[in-house]
Write a protein that binds this DNA or RNA. Structure first.
Lengths: 199, 199
DNA sequence: CGGCGTCTTGGACGATCGACCAACTGTGAT
DNA sequence: ATCACAGTTGGTCGATCGTCCAAGACGCCG
């Protein structure tokens, strides 16, 4: 194996671990499966990571940040509030249908963190981030459209987050795309009904 | 160990497995942990079950049915549509806060089933049941209140299921009860706005 | 050139897991 | 009492896991 800095190898292992998770699930993401995916000898692993938990922790934070980055592009663009909302929900859903495994892994990691002693904070921070981003995007959309939300922003963000998580989870099980899109459309209309002209 | 029919022992092991899951999570629900919880020798296990998977399968179906049975009581009672909806959502949420672990296990089992070869159907049927029950309850509520839903029932049921799953998942991570209740209240008002007087 | 720190490697260890089995015990029917 | 069958038991097997280590290889600096 060609020589490589431990830092770089860490990144490659994190990426390999994520691929294994998407393919086989978090539980089956063993140290051996990861180094095998990265085509590295087993001994490398504990030279780059103190433990398997440390690797999973890194994957969780990476997932969280990348999820946030993706969402950030979602509310971009022109149009009135209705068009922006509809486009955002559509973009989110396109992301789910395009790579369901990644979202599935996200949930698996959340439940893993909730069970792991001392990792509960990681799950908490994960959703803290999501809610914060949703809050920010809803605020920007309101400002850009010259409206005010008639519901407290933290509640609205949690509502939006809940619907997105909920439809994704249900779709992962039954793959009913048609009804899911209608639920998102319904949610979009509901959001618009919660906007009032700014004073 | 006192003599007992294999059938009865099966039930006790299923119950013990569920307790272990709630306490330690699905992943740590090993055959040894289960028989230890049930205070039985290890050898009993494979006399009552062909495999660990068979036990988990039984727990999943039990969870699904009990969840359905619980939901069935939720829409009972008197009052107009608004009161009934509010009471139902409150009852659901009371159930979550009262025993969060059971709901957490439900999600863990769903993800377990989605990953297990040949168990995908179990997850699909699980959500099929949930949607069917929500659909039925929404239909009964409409009939009893003399209204019609302005949204197709399957879509409305999926929407309701999504919100409930979503807020539960988020709450399991951040335990913000106050905002969660407001989201449910918001959802209740939304549902009412989707009701029209029957012709 | 020589040494030193970084990286590489294959193998090994103890723990834990699902699964299995042979021997034993109790019970009810004959 | 005897026999057949259902239930019980403790031990053990092979596989897989996370982790660790000693020895070697590489590359940079003096």
């Amino acid at each position: 194996m060609s020589r490589m800095a431990a830092k770089d190898r860490r990144q490659e292992l994190i990426a390999a671990a994520f691929r294994v998770m998407v393919r086989d699930g978090v539980v089956k993401t063993t140290t051996r499966a990861v180094v095998n995916e990265a085509k590295m000898p087993l001994g490398i692993f504990h030279y780059c990571f103190n433990s398997r938990e440390e690797l999973l922790q890194e994957v969780i934070t990476r997932i969280t940040d990348s999820g946030v980055a993706k969402a950030r592009n979602v509310f971009e663009g022109e149009g009135d509030l209705g068009a922006r909302i509809a486009r955002s929900l559509y973009a989110f859903w396109e992301g789910v249908e395009l790579s369901p495994g990644e979202h599935q892994v996200g949930y698996e990691l959340t439940h893993y963190a909730l069970r792991q002693e001392g990792f509960e904070d990681l799950a908490r921070r994960q959703y803290e981030h999501y809610l914060e981003v949703h809050e920010q995007l809803l605020a920007e959309a309101a400002e850009s459209a010259g409206i005010k939300w008639t519901v407290p922003l933290p509640v609205l963000a949690r509502y939006l987050n809940a619907v997105l998580d909920g439809v994704t989870l249900c779709w992962l099980a039954d793959r009913n795309s048609e009804n899911t899109r209608e639920v998102l459309s319904l949610t979009g209309e509901h959001l618009m009904s919660l906007a009032a002209k700014d004073a």
